[in-house]
Amino acid sequence: MMLLRKPSALLSIVFLAVVVVAMIAPQLLTQRDPLEVDLSVALHAPSLDHLFGTDQTGRDVYTRVIYGAQASIGVGLIATGTALIAGLVFGTLIGLAPRWLDAILMRAVDLLLAVPEFVLALIIVAVLGPGPVNIAFAVTLSVVPVYIRLARVHTRSLRQAEFVTSARLLGIGSVRVLSRHVMPTVLARLSVLATIGVGTAILSAAGLSFLGLGVTEPAPEWGLMLSGGRNELATAWWIAVFPGLAITAVVIATSVLGRHLRRLTEEGAA
C-alpha cells in the first residue's frame, strides 16, 4: 500500500493505533485507576513510578491521559461522523436542487462559514448549556457547513459526468443514480476531508472543556486536565503539558494522514 511507504503517514497510523487502544482498552496501557487519590504523592514530578507525574490530589497524570482519550477523541469522532453524514445528505440535495433554491440555501451556509468554527460552537453551547452531549452537538453544527459546501460542489460537477449521463441513458432512475453513483463518489471525497477534520473537532471540543463547558471533575478529559493545570505551570508543569501534548499529537497525526489520503485521491483522479 502506497500510504505505508510514507514514513510520516506510517508513524501517524502507528500512533493513532495506540490512541485507539487507549480508547477501547485503556487497561492494556496502564494498571492504575484514573480517579485514585493519594495526597501523599501530590504534585510529584515525572518519575519511573509516575511517568507523567501526579496532579494536585496525587492522581497519576499518565493514567488520566490514557483514560482521557475516550472522552476527548470520542466527541471529535462523533461530531465529525455526524457532520459527514449530514453534510453528504444536505450537500447532495442542494447540489441537485434548482438554481434559485441552491442560491438561497448556499447563502445560509456561507453565513455559517463566515463565523469561525470554535466561536460558532461556543455560541451554540452558550445557548444550549454545558455538557458533553451539547459540546458534541455544537461541534457538529460548527463543522457541518464545510461538508455541505464540498458535497454540493462535487454533486454539481457529477451531474454532468459521463458515467451519470450513461446511467440515465440506460434508463436507470434518478434515485438509483443518486444512491449508487453520485453519493458514494461524494462520500469518498468527503471522507478525506473528515480525516483532517477529526483533529479540528477534537481541538474544538478540548477548548470548550478547557473553558469548563464539557465534562466536570473528576472525569479524565484532556481539555479539563489542561484547565486544571494552568495555574500550576510554574511549579508542576507536567499536569498541563502532557494532556496538551496528547491533543497536539492527535491533531498532527490526523492532519498528516488526511493530507496523504487527499494527495493519493488527487493522484488517482488525475
Results as ranks from 00 to 15, higher is better:
L264I: 14
I172Q: 04
G129S: 10
G207F: 01
Q56T: 07
S209V: 06
A114G: 01
S166W: 12
R176G: 08
A167M: 06
V182D: 00
A205F: 13
T155W: 13
G197F: 07
E117P: 07
E36T: 04
G131R: 11
A240T: 05
G212N: 03
L226Q: 02
G229E: 06
R259E: 15
G199N: 01
G171A: 12
G95M: 07
L122K: 01
T185K: 05
A269D: 00
V139S: 10
G74K: 08
A253H: 00
V41T: 01
R230W: 15
T265R: 11
S191P: 01
G223V: 06
I135H: 01
L169S: 00
G171P: 06
A234D: 04
T254S: 11
V177G: 03
L120P: 06
A42T: 14
G197C: 00
L122V: 05
G199R: 01
P116G: 02
V164K: 09
E232Q: 13
D38Q: 03
P132C: 06
M1C: 08
A253I: 11
A121Y: 04
G68H: 03
H181W: 08
R99F: 09
E36V: 02
K6G: 00
G91F: 05
G95C: 02
R5M: 13
L120E: 02
L233G: 13
I202K: 09
Y147W: 12
G229N: 03
S12T: 12
L150A: 11
G173P: 05
D110M: 11
A161H: 14
V146E: 08
V19G: 07
R168F: 03
S255F: 07
P130G: 10
L93K: 04
Q56P: 00
I123E: 05
A270T: 09
G199A: 07
L264W: 08
V89T: 13
G81N: 13
L88R: 11
L150Y: 07
W222P: 09
L28F: 13
A136L: 10
L224H: 12
I148H: 06
L226N: 00
R156H: 09
A138L: 10
V182M: 13
L122P: 00
W100A: 08
V75A: 05
T254M: 15
G76M: 03
Q70T: 05
E266G: 02
L43F: 15
T80R: 05
F137H: 06
G58M: 09
A201E: 14
G244P: 04
M225F: 09
P243K: 06
I24E: 07
G197H: 13
